[in-house]
Design a protein around this nucleic acid. Structure first.
Length: 266
DNA sequence: AAGATGCTCAACCGCAAAAGG
DNA sequence: GCCTTTTGCGGTTGAGCATCT
């Protein structure tokens, strides 16, 4: 018996996406907005599973994605958020505009984990590795070992509010302060403050690109769709050229019609 | 130069939660 | 409230590239 597959496996393509497939998906979403992902492959003429389309869009094709390595500040923020939220990558990603959960997860596993281990910090508990040996004898919380800087206090209060908002899914790591948090707070006070002050999800509204909702986004003080569309001209890092000129002109004309954008104006 | 090893990251898989009837 | 469908999440894999021996 077993579970029904998420999509009809027969005739469903797997593996890396081709430029042609990307083109179809982008074209479809620009024209129709994000609708039922299950229906997308059929409607867009793709031999892919809906899940795969959603993943490709959210992790690679979305207009608001930043490319390239995480900055130092972003990395520190990830570390801090991980200390509080654990492996809840989507929640962490929601607080880093332009970054995806997959990207952050990958970066964590390939870079940050090693970095922390090198520094003698357990990437799971965010506590010093040597301290853990004696932690069973020492019942005091990690925060008690640290001098509490004013900026840290402010951040911790905001985090407290955040945690209470999310306490239904609290992770075992949430209450542990860490040496890293301390240094992050000291070095990036303004960054941390701005982040904790604005707890609204940054990403979701930004990339809700259904054409008719532009003005609603604007009401929230967020950039309207047109402001985020410069990517259409260069297709981010993978470039227009990756699609071939012919296919791009087709997407471009459709996209520009959809969003009412005049290329000459850019 | 060539094979071995390590690293990165896009993509897949399976499960759980949410949504809809 | 139950069942089915759809979506979202986190863990894992593996191809491709870089570096080492």
């Amino acid at each position: 018996m077993g579970r029904q597959p998420c999509c009809d496996k027969l005739g469903v393509k797997k593996g890396p996406w081709t430029a042609e497939e990307d083109k179809k998906l982008i074209n479809f979403i620009l024209t129709n907005g994000q609708c039922c992902w299950r229906a997308v492959p059929k409607l867009a003429g793709l031999r892919r599973c809906g899940k795969s389309c959603r993943l490709r869009w959210t992790n690679y094709l979305r207009p608001d994605l930043k490319r390239g390595l995480l900055t130092q500040a972003e990395e520190q923020l990830v570390i801090d958020l991980h200390a509080r939220l654990g492996n809840r990558w989507s929640k962490i990603a929601a607080r880093l505009p332009g970054r995806t959960d997959n990207e952050i997860k990958n970066h964590w596993n390939t870079h940050i984990k090693k970095k922390l281990l090198k520094m003698g910090i357990d990437p799971v508990t965010h506590e010093p590795l040597n301290k853990q040996v004696t932690s069973s004898q020492d019942s005091s919380s990690p925060a008690q070992h640290l001098p509490q800087a004013d900026s840290t206090l402010q951040v911790e209060q905001k985090v407290g509010a955040l945690n209470s908002e999310e306490n239904s899914t609290s992770s075992p790591n949430e209450n542990s302060s860490s040496l890293l948090v301390e240094s992050i707070c000291k070095n990036n006070e303004s960054l941390m403050n701005s982040i904790w002050l604005d707890e609204s999800p940054l990403m979701d509204t930004l990339w809700d690109i259904t054409p008719k909702v532009e003005n609603e986004n604007n009401d929230m003080g967020l950039p309207i769709w047109e402001d985020n569309c410069s990517w259409l001209l260069d297709f981010q890092d993978f470039g227009v050229h990756d699609f071939g000129f012919n296919c791009f002109s087709e997407i471009e004309s459709n996209a520009l019609q959809t969003i009412g954008m005049d290329r000459k104006g850019l």
